[in-house]
Amino acid sequence: MSEDPSAMPLQLTVNGEVRDLRAAPWVTLLDLLRETLQLTGSKKGCDHGQCGACTVLVDGRRVNSCLILALTRDGSEVTTIEGLAKDGALHPLQQAFIEHDALQCGYCTPGQICSAAGLLSEGQARCREEVRELMSGNLCRCGAYTHIVEAIETVRLSGAEAAA
């Protein structure tokens, strides 16, 4: 593919790896991840910030990557679902999602898990109801919500996220 002459340089640290990239101003972070970096774990479900499937962590905060123009995050650290597992071991949330069957088709799952990781580091959820509210930005059409909450609660109450 020929280089887009409108592309401008940007540097991102993606899943711990420094990447010197170029992107046109109208390229979103989500599309950069999926199309340029082939990190297709971050999903496109609406492309308008209305479903949460594209959730990634930027500088440790969960965000909708579909609404972020990639250039605006020059210099940032981005963690996607591909970067959550460490040394081949699944993140405690990933493990809990499998155990609690907190997924069905799996399409919203990476966004749910990245969102849950953000939720745990925010530390604002102290009970199930708060988890439910603060996870409501991630739609799941398969309807796995109750299992998603169980998976997150298991990790939250075990304090396992602190070690992760």
Partner: peptide
């Protein structure tokens, strides 16, 4: 308003 992700941005 919105969602946790949107409020972060």
């Amino acid at each position: 308003g919105a969602s946790a992700q949107l409020r972060n941005v």
